[in-house]
Nucleic acid binder design. Structure first.
Lengths: 299, 299
DNA sequence: AATAGATGTTTCATGAATGAAAGATGGAAC
DNA sequence: GTTCCATCTTTCATTCATGAAACATCTATT
């Protein structure tokens, strides 16, 4: 006994005491059960006191353990104070990611993968014209469909993005019975036209079905609602169409529209650890879904 | 930043802050300067705040460091509470060592070597009949001149103990001029007769100088005072006579009296970590001085 | 200037702490 | 009974932290 005891062991002690055992203390502490077991014995050893009764269904505090618990809570007060001070004096940095409407949606769906619990930041997903935002430093990470050409922006190629025509499943089956010549003329279309410059898919639709009956939506969610309701066909990136239940492809991939996905960062942010980490996560996420983006997902 | 920070690092932080640098924090914390350096950087890293300004003559707290200092002191209050509770509920155990008068003195002189700062115990050196004390569990460790034969006692042989006649230096030089026949008869003797059974050296003296002029002392300190004052010769273990300034040997080693030194422990104490440790220290101490005990010390 | 005396930081071989997996243990359910 | 399911503990290869020594930096002194 009497080796100088470790303050941090009291943190573990509190967790074990509160969880009535090692198993429940694993996640709050971030230490494994074997470690907790060893540290608790070490604590008892160095304090020269038995703190727990080991029962088959967990740990129970001894009288001495209860005494220590009180003192440990005082320590915890200090630790909580540090924590409050830290978060107050050190507001979480915000990383802004700018992406197109569909891509933002994709990122949003995979938010849990991007925000691992251990890091201390807030994410903001901006939908807008990525390139401009980045140059003005209104965003830290951009996802665009072209290699950036402005000075001060660095780009990484992530994946190929394929497009196709999609519609509500039953509607698509009906349409399929029509001849190829009438298939895409004798139908209603839903066109996505977000604010800002015209998107390629909308331009393509204008060219391919200039006289079609079109409903225009300026909002991605509305497009999906409309298409899902069977109100018409639309052009979607495969990573959206293929992952939205109730929709089916109504065409082959549209080569004209397919493009590369680029991740763009500002040179000034290149050395920011947090931004680098987040950029890597976004890149990894998209690359891991390359087949989906390329339209090769097994449906 | 934001990895779960270590409570124990605040202990080090307090020490570094109070010492205005790493060097001064080494001894209070028990950690080395490189470790302190690394942990302080790690703490700053995980808190995401600069705590110290590194100056050429040490560390100085930043404003943020001063903030943290306050919170850390709260933690420290808890730690001190634990400390008080621990020492109160857990009184230091006492280890009792029983030994003869001279051996006790030897142990007492080397007390610092036996009591290393890190262990939490009190020592009691009992002078008395070692064997009986041990059986009655009145002592934990005994030093005797015979192998223990009682059941329940375990013995380890440590060293050979030699005896010789000693006297005050000038007195011895005078005596040396006398013939060998008169040398030990024509003188005064100091006899040591502690309470309890007669010690071998006293018996030897009775045999060798039955008609000598003897002063009897029942107390070791008194014997040395008397001999040192030139009041007479006496028989002493060499480890006493050879290390007492002002005394010189007045004879060869007395083979009849020389015996082994045994370290005796009670079987029930065999598994007590503290007692085992102390027994080992005593054994190591005496063995390291084997030459002195055997009367071969270079004078 | 050169030297000696502080300091904190790197380097590197060693040793300790860690977690995954396997083991052990003791109920509870069938 | 036997089989599960929960617990904690051991084992063992790996990773990480540690301290001695060398290094670097700066100040004060000769």
């Amino acid at each position: 006994m009497n080796e100088r005891w470790n303050w941090d062991d009291l943190r573990l002690f509190l967790a074990v005491a509160r969880a009535d055992g090692l198993a429940g203390a694993v996640s709050p502490t971030g230490a494994s059960a074997p470690t907790l077991s060893r540290r608790m014995t070490a604590l008892e050893q160095s304090l020269g006191v038995t703190l727990f009764i080991r029962r088959r269904d967990g740990y129970a505090l001894t009288a001495a353990g209860k005494d220590l618990f009180g003192h440990a809570e005082t320590l915890e007060q200090g630790a909580l104070g540090v924590e409050r001070w830290r978060t107050a004096s050190n507001p979480k940095p915000v990383i802004k990611i700018a992406a197109g409407a569909w891509t933002s949606g994709f990122l949003a769906r995979h938010l849990p993968k991007l925000l691992e619990s251990e890091d201390d930041l807030n994410l903001e997903v901006l939908t807008g014209s990525a390139s401009a935002d980045l140059l003005r430093r209104e965003a830290n990470i951009g996802l665009r469909n072209r290699r950036p050409n402005a000075i001060g922006l660095a780009g990484r190629k992530l994946a190929r993005v394929a497009f196709a025509v999609y519609g509500e499943i039953k509607l698509v089956q009906e349409q399929a019975r029509l001849g190829d010549d009438r298939r895409f003329t004798d139908c209603r279309w839903i066109a996505f036209s977000p604010p800002g410059p015209k998107v390629p898919s909308a331009s393509w639709l204008d060219r391919r079905a200039p006289q079609g009956r079109k409903t225009v939506c300026s909002n991605a969610h509305a497009v999906l609602e409309a298409v899902g309701a069977g109100a018409g066909l639309t052009v979607l990136p495969c990573f959206v169409g293929d992952t939205t239940t109730g929709l089916a492809r109504a065409s082959e991939l549209i080569d004209e529209l397919s493009h590369e996905q680029w991740l763009v960062t500002h040179d000034d942010d290149r050395h920011d650890r947090q931004i680098k980490k987040m950029a890597k996560r976004v890149a990894d996420l998209i690359r891991s879904q390359a087949q989906l983006f390329a339209g090769n997902a097994g449906l």
